[in-house]
Amino acid sequence: MRFKAQIQNITTFTKFVASLTSLGPVAWVRLNENDVRFTIIPEQGTQVWAVLAIDAIFEGYTIQSAAENVINLEVPLGPLHQALKSALQATAASIRLTKKDNIPLLSITIVRNSIGNARQSASEDDDGGIGIGLSRERETTITQDVPVRVLSPSKVEGIHEPRCRDPDVHIILPPLMQLKSISDRFTKVALESRSVTAGLSAIGPRLEMAANMHGCLRLGIKTDAMKMASLWTGLDNPELDPSHLEGGMEEIQQHPSTRMKQLGGPDGQSEEGWAKVRLDGKDWGKVMSVGRLGGRVIACFCHEHALILYVYLPSERDEEESALTYYISSYSA
């Protein structure tokens, strides 16, 4: 089993890992020659299935294994994030799978060039640093080891991406940081009111999120003392692409979202035509942290059932987009 690669987009990779870190301590990472898949299945909360085109983060890679060149690893996200953070100012960074004392490791080698911040690097990494002229062009190499577990194919074959019925409503979300700031405040309001009324139970605050096929998104919360809702209008409901559906145009006509289009209106005042889900406020806040990647987000609402978010990462080079898929189940009322 061999894996080694140059990390070519350290900033994106680091942000990506950071946004996953909040959702779970470990990820199942599946590597093959086309893509890198990160999967987080926490005991409770949101599942993430993220697929990155391998070119989006790695270059000059070698991936070989006895199992059709697929490598499955269990990677602790916290240490991985820490390791990548120290690579943020690197001129080059590479990653490889290795073994030390019989423990499998992802070893990240980071090369930092000291030009430009000679003084800083002198105090940090070196006891020399007397002459600035001397310290020029000095390279620092840092190696970070992240212990991992290698998963056998049999161990992961039972894990499948959740399947969900066709969504009732799909909509492009407003900027996630904006959505997050509002939903975080809702969560805070709900928590505050709880401490005042000396709480019912240990369940987290529930946000109600709904959308219709006329560009409206509604986020609301209800507590003993208040009812609060924010309404966005004028968002986009992307058209379904017939080529992506088995039944083509015919299937589109049968699609639940086509039916939902008949209901409600663009001002969001009608009670009809909304697909609703109930989310845990805290978990939702963590999901929203993916906003730091700055991608386009399509939310698919299955009424009273689940919310699926597709986060498309902005890629500089080509059209082959990387996407993160979040599966969030709706709570019952």
Partner: peptide, 19 residues
């Protein structure tokens, strides 16, 4: 009736009904 506050800002309307 609830005390209602409606805030509007660039495409977002927040309605809050305080008991």
């Amino acid at each position: 009736a609830p005390f209602t506050i409606v805030l509007q800002e660039s495409g977002i309307t927040t309605t809050s009904e305080l008991v």
